[in-house]
Design a protein around this nucleic acid. Structure first.
Lengths: 186, 186
DNA sequence: GTCTATACACCGATAGAC
DNA sequence: GTCTATCGGTGTATAGAC
């Protein structure tokens, strides 16, 4: 992994633990054993780093969705894989989801990052909506007239549980997911 | 309203739009037409201001719950009043919920504030759980074995929708609440 | 209770040498 | 690609006069 990739990787961790304005070029330089100026060489402005983090997140989402979609499994299993990925990549490290982290700093983000965030949200909402719709069509979930609204309930439950679990413990995440399952089935 | 109250009132707005680390004593001093040093006179350290904001939020919650509990109305109506208060106090001003704002900055908050936040969470979870349980007992909502997990789904849907509405528009909030209603009834 | 003045650490950012 | 050195701005916080 080259320096540029290391910067993005460490920044992605910091984004998820402290928010976009919660870490600095100095933090990065200390972690990598280089100077601030060297970090600026790779990402001249922090906005450049921010957009790279948005790309990193998009790749993270797209690669994840690809893995959740194994042929032959139920639609609920796909959502469970999504939740398990959240457990592995966020919950276990006491991190938030990177999208939530960006939303928290929304009013202090440059416009380009706000637009990139909107794209990320839609990628996630589209995927979850599609899975939910497929589950409804297959009779796996209760009928719903607005799959996108339903997707919102699922996504917000998941992300909110990651937030709260940092303070109240990981069990809260699993409880929340379990209750959503009972709501949507039968 | 005296200066101290004005500081808290303005800080509460800033907390909900920019997060706890997203505003400074300089911001407050400019808004009130006094100097930074005068703000420090009322709240020597920012942590002092932060704890005052937690108290303000607790009062905001408790007063709200009192108003939502009118005798004779349905349990769902109580939750709707909760959502309407969120609309009035947060959504209409493009603000997040103050509790969400604090969660976003969690890892940068002093320990006393983290503990105060935990108390706030529990006050809210207790109230929503109690209303949900009453609704289940009355046959108004579907049975659920874990009212607190169910309360999490509701609260996270509500708070997440406030987050996303800042970027995607207010309609998302109402769509999300509507879908939760359909999930929990029948 | 408010002011001026100041301290010190950190922030993002740039110039220029190697 | 990394370094030293530096810039202006901002953050929390304090001392001391009025």
């Amino acid at each position: 992994m080259n320096t540029k990739q290391q910067i993005v990787a460490y920044s992605a961790d910091m984004l998820r633990t402290r928010g976009f304005n919660g870490f600095s070029y100095l933090d990065i330089s200390r972690e990598l054993g280089i100077t601030k100026a060297s970090v600026h060489h790779h990402f001249p402005k922090k906005q450049d780093l921010g957009l790279a983090l948005c790309e990193w997140t998009e790749e993270w989402l797209v690669q994840g969705f690809k893995h959740f979609e194994e042929h032959g499994i139920s639609e609920w299993d796909k959502l469970q894989r999504y939740a398990r990925a959240a457990t592995k990549h966020c919950l276990s490290e006491q991190m938030m989801c990177p999208i939530s982290a960006l939303h928290g700093d929304l009013n202090k983000l440059p416009l380009e990052m706000q637009q990139a965030l909107q794209v990320l949200d839609n990628i996630e909402l589209d995927w979850v909506s599609r899975v939910l719709q497929a589950g409804i069509d297959a009779g796996e979930f209760k009928a719903a007239d607005d799959p996108r609204g339903l997707a919102s309930v699922f996504i917000f439950s998941c992300k909110g549980a990651l937030y709260y679990a940092r303070l109240h413990g990981k069990e809260l995440f699993h409880q929340t997911m379990q209750q959503f399952e009972k709501l949507i089935k039968e």
